Amino acid sequence: MIELLSSAIFVFFVVMDPVGVLPVFIGLTQGFTSAQRRYIAIKGCIVAGIVLGLFAYFGNWFLTALGISLSAFRIAGGALLFLIAVEMLFERRTARKSAVAGEAVSRTHEEAQDIAVFPLAIPLLAGPGALTSMLLLMGRAPGIGAQALVLLACAINMALVLILLISGEAIARKLGRTLINTISRVLGLMLAALAIQFIVDGILEVAGRV
């Protein structure tokens, strides 16, 4: 159980990438008051948490309706996580997030008001990587107790993201751009290894049924 909880916390931390989201959030909220930034951060984390929670219990049903096996999704999900890891290693992910943020800001004032939902909650926090990880981890969790640990790991990460976003400017000034990039690359390397493990597990499951 402890291994599952620690693994889930790490996976969610890497795919949500709060360190990478932080500078994007700061750019998105320029010109907002401290109270408005807190509101955006809190609402974004709540919405992302709800989306991930729903996908945890209904994502499998959705795959079944489409005729997709969990093993196939595990292989595809591992491949997706590997691509995310490559982006993190070569700093492409931060550039993509900034582009998404810029797209939201370039819209009308009314559309940009609710940036807590787009792009903060979706796709920056509850993006494809986080949704895939949620489904894969829930699939590996035997029983209600283990599934509760996966949800707890997600909640812990959401709380951490919220703390980082609320104190974003102060943290960014202290860490500096170089350290943020270094942390992102180390996490990307570890995520790549974990993604390969997901792919291997999926292949072994398919081979076991043949």
Rank of each mutant, 00 (worst) to 15 (best):
L137G: 07
G77N: 08
Y57T: 06
I42T: 13
V117M: 11
T108L: 07
E87D: 14
P18D: 07
I46M: 12
L120I: 15
L124F: 01
I115S: 07
A35E: 15
G31M: 13
A112R: 11
R107A: 10
I26E: 14
G49L: 12
P142F: 10
R74I: 05
L22Q: 03
I40C: 10
L66Y: 07
A56L: 10
V100K: 03
G53E: 09
R38L: 15
Y39K: 15
V117Q: 05
T33V: 10
R140W: 05
D17Y: 01
T64K: 11
V24F: 02
L135V: 02
R107V: 01
P119G: 13
A99R: 08
L135P: 02
G59F: 00
E91T: 03
D17I: 06
A72L: 12
S71L: 05
A148Q: 09
R37Q: 14
G143K: 02
Y57L: 13
F58Y: 14
I40D: 13
K97I: 02
F90E: 09
I75N: 03
L89C: 11
G127K: 08
R96P: 02
S98Q: 09
I75Q: 07
G53K: 09
S71E: 15
Q30N: 13
A112L: 12
G67V: 03
G67E: 13
K43S: 14
S34Y: 04
A121Y: 13
A99H: 05
G143I: 00
R38G: 08
S106V: 01
A121L: 13
L81N: 09
A116P: 02
L136A: 08
A126F: 04
T64G: 14
A141K: 08
S34F: 05
G139P: 05
T64V: 07
G67T: 04
D114T: 14
A35L: 14
L81A: 09
S69D: 06
I115E: 05
L81R: 00
A99T: 06
G31Q: 12
A116M: 07
Q147S: 10
G53A: 15
L136F: 05
G78T: 06
L124K: 01
A112V: 12
